[in-house]
């Protein structure tokens, strides 16, 4: 299978500290990359650097065989991002926030009702984000991923703040995404078991 997302000879510094060097990874369609390691090992930094929010000291990340640095646009139109800070406006309600997202990236709004139903958000869609619990806010962030027509999902600690049902939900939607040919990069200190091909990067 051809590699879609790959990293070559990656090295990252935060301040004077070298988090990792000579790091390599490659991911094909339908594969999951799990970034593991204890707190402070640089999981989030690696994820942010692959997404392009941080600069690697050396090395290149390639998307579809083209270095991301040469074609940010193509990479970003295939990327959706989920992290601790959900990136929604507290004063706007769920629908307003998701509508804003649809102006930024290619998304399928016809699925909106189904996605909200599945994430148990239907009844609270007109509530401002700030009155929602942390777990519910994470569910809204999941809605962003499900609506986006993006091949690559990048998730930083996707299980944080979610209840049991929510955690199962994350695993289910990730599995479906992989089955439909998507790719997924997850940074997590919780073990993730998703059958199919899972690759791992372990940071010390």
């Amino acid at each position: 299978m051809t590699e879609i997302l790959s990293g070559n000879d990656l090295c990252l510094f935060r301040g004077d500290r070298c988090l990792f060097k000579n790091l390599e990874f490659a991911l094909s369609e339908g594969e999951l990359l799990v970034i593991e390691g204890p707190n402070g090992s640089g999981k989030t930094s690696l994820l942010r650097a692959v997404a392009g929010l941080l600069e690697f000291e050396t090395g290149t990340v390639s998307w579809d065989g083209v270095p991301v640095r040469k074609n940010f646009q193509a990479f970003r139109s295939d990327l959706v991002w989920l992290s601790h800070r959900v990136g929604f406006k507290g004063d706007l309600n769920i629908l307003e926030n998701l509508k804003f997202e649809s102006g930024l990236r290619d998304s399928d709004q016809t699925r909106l009702a189904d996605v909200l139903e599945r994430l148990s958000l239907s009844g609270i869609a007109d509530l401002p984000i700030r009155v929602l619990s942390a777990g519910q806010q994470r569910r809204v962030a999941l809605a962003r991923m499900l609506l986006a027509n993006a091949r690559l999902w990048m998730m930083d600690e996707p299980f944080t703040n979610l209840d049991k049902a929510g955690q199962v939900l994350v695993k289910d939607v990730t599995r479906e995404h992989l089955l439909s040919g998507g790719l997924c990069v997850v940074a997590s200190h919780q073990p993730i078991e998703i059958d199919g091909s899972t690759r791992r990067v372990t940071l010390q």
Binding site: A51, G52, L53, Q73, R76, S77, L79, W81, S83, H84, R85, V86, G87, F88, K89, G90, E101, L104, R105, D106
Partner: peptide, 11 residues
């Protein structure tokens, strides 16, 4: 609130 990450990572 993380919106800036989303803006930077948007296409």
């Amino acid at each position: 609130d993380g919106s800036l990450d989303q803006l930077i990572l948007s296409p």
